[in-house]
Design a protein around this nucleic acid. Structure first.
Lengths: 308, 308
DNA sequence: TCCTGAATTTCAGCAAATCTGAAATTTACT
DNA sequence: AGTAAATTTCAGATTTGCTGAAATTCAGGA
């Protein structure tokens, strides 16, 4: 049966015009090549070379050279693609994250690892957590960075980082006049502007506050506008504000340490991800780990470098 | 190193979803396939299947399947092309012959061997002998059927058949009133219409006649027109007239048996021809041999069957 | 949860293919 | 014709690949 290595040997010999040089190139002895070509000619039952010296091809030889050359090249290309994909130097990764991570962690990941990505094509999108989970389950993205859903079946999750909620208000708001954590009772005395992220806080006190809230805003721009207009205060995870251009607003942490948003690395549980996706995941986790070594200090540094 | 047979094994297993069926298809044992795939996975340093049962692929597995499938198909196509070319069931042969052979022998060849030509693409052209030799030496055709040149260097020749010259004249011409061979002396008493074929006769008497000839015509139609108008007689090889629609003309052989046109099978001496060309050559020679078994009778038969 | 049968993997030994190095042969060139 | 280089041949060594049996793993039912 015809083998690629036979064709490769023939191409090398036919092109170099003699066995010894070809043997050098291929890293075998001339005698091995001689036997290989003999076998090929026996298989075709026709000579490929005009003379014993391999410097002139028969008509069949010329035809085989053309075909074999094309074939060997095609094969090598395929092998490169397969090996490249396996070693994550080639491929495509589609990732979707919540905006705050898209604006903080992700840029860090790329600035650290961009050189290791080779030919990998990374597609980043930002969307809200439930959309991310939906896109994941429909196989529209490979990796998601989002909060977990109540009962997301078929998704594998891994805690990436947890993000402390705090109170945001205008600098001349009464709550901005003091430092330190804010208690639920303290917060209850001010008008709350609810938002989709704060609605996720599970503490009972938070639920009560939301039940009484009169205003709900969805996007950061409008929330921040209301804060500056001193209409009220809001609750947001720390990263959500650091990712945006905050301008003149004050952040005070919540006294209730359970009020956190937990951001997970999500992927489909049943199907495997490509090596490139796995590699990107590793880069993200390592980046997060590094940033958390110096705890908040490192996170702050990340934020600063991210807001020129 | 990655081998085609490994890719083929992987494709078969990935498509059938289990080892045993694939082993059946490939004609090996499941254990052989198991080891092959293990080796492939080790080479890529990544799993190709989700579970030990081979019915679900990893992301890498899906990618490799796609690539390997394409590759195996490409390889098989190449091998078919090479083997087909070698066995002369595939290829192209360009052949040029003098018109008389194009009109007699060649149709016979095809009617006998057409079924053996498979996918071979045969191109037939007719032209005069010197053009044929020229085209051959420029590698524009693979096989030529023509008379030899004076000093055609680099051409291999082989006598195919020799064709007796004779006198052609109108039925009411004086020479048509008798049977049997015509002597040079007899012929000298009539006006000769010279032509490019008769000019090639080497006999001294023929040269004298040509020196005195007043008319020279190149193509058969005009020659025959002149014969019918009783302007004179001409000398032509027997096949040249049998190949054409002769109509009402009389042929009498020459007494001088040396006046023959020798038609050769020509090809370039240095470069080899393709297996398909070689096969066609064989077919032509065999056809000629068969026709000559019954000597002239057979040739006559050929002519008859060729002029419906 | 355990059992059962099927599928797969492992292992050892065997067979086939391929390689090497030396010697013999052929070829091209002087 | 002689010589040097290239190629082929040959035998032995090595590697690779395959088989068949046994062990293991797995899926599905009791």
């Amino acid at each position: 049966m015809l083998k690629i290595e036979t064709l490769r040997a023939y191409v090398t010999v036919a092109r170099s015009g003699n066995l010894s040089d070809a043997a050098e190139v291929l890293g075998r002895t001339p005698s091995a090549l001689s036997m290989m070509l003999k076998q090929l000619e026996a298989h075709l039952d026709e000579p490929l070379f005009e003379t014993d010296r391999k410097n002139r091809l028969t008509a069949l030889g010329a035809f085989v050279l053309e075909q074999a050359e094309r074939e060997v090249q095609h094969f090598d290309t395929t092998v490169r693609a397969i090996e490249g994909y396996a070693r994550a130097v080639y491929g495509r990764v589609r990732i979707a994250t919540v905006p705050s991570v898209a604006g903080t962690i992700i840029p860090q990941v790329f600035s650290r690892y961009i050189n290791d990505f080779g030919e990998v094509d990374v597609e980043v999108r930002d969307m809200d957590s439930s959309s991310i989970r939906h896109e994941l389950s429909r196989n529209r993205i490979d990796i998601g960075i989002a909060t977990k859903g109540k009962h997301d079946a078929g998704l594998h999750s891994e805690l990436l980082l947890s993000d402390e909620f705090g109170v945001i208000c205008a600098p001349d708001h009464p709550l901005a006049q003091q430092d330190g954590p804010v208690s639920w009772a303290e917060l209850a005395e001010h008008r709350l502007i609810a938002n989709s992220l704060s609605a996720g806080i599970e503490a009972a006190a938070a639920r009560d506050l939301h039940a009484q809230a009169l205003l709900t805003a969805q996007n950061l721009t409008s929330i921040f506008g209301m804060l500056r207009a001193k209409i009220g205060v809001t609750l947001l995870p720390e990263m959500a504000i650091s990712a945006a251009a905050v301008g003149e607003l004050v952040f005070r942490p919540l006294a209730d340490a359970t009020a956190r948003r937990e951001i997970h690395l999500l992927r489909k549980a049943d199907s495997s991800i490509s090596p490139a996706a796995r590699f990107l995941e590793e880069c993200i986790k390592e980046t997060v780990a590094t940033l958390q070594v110096g705890s908040e200090a490192a996170l702050d540094a990340a934020r600063l470098s991210d807001a020129p």
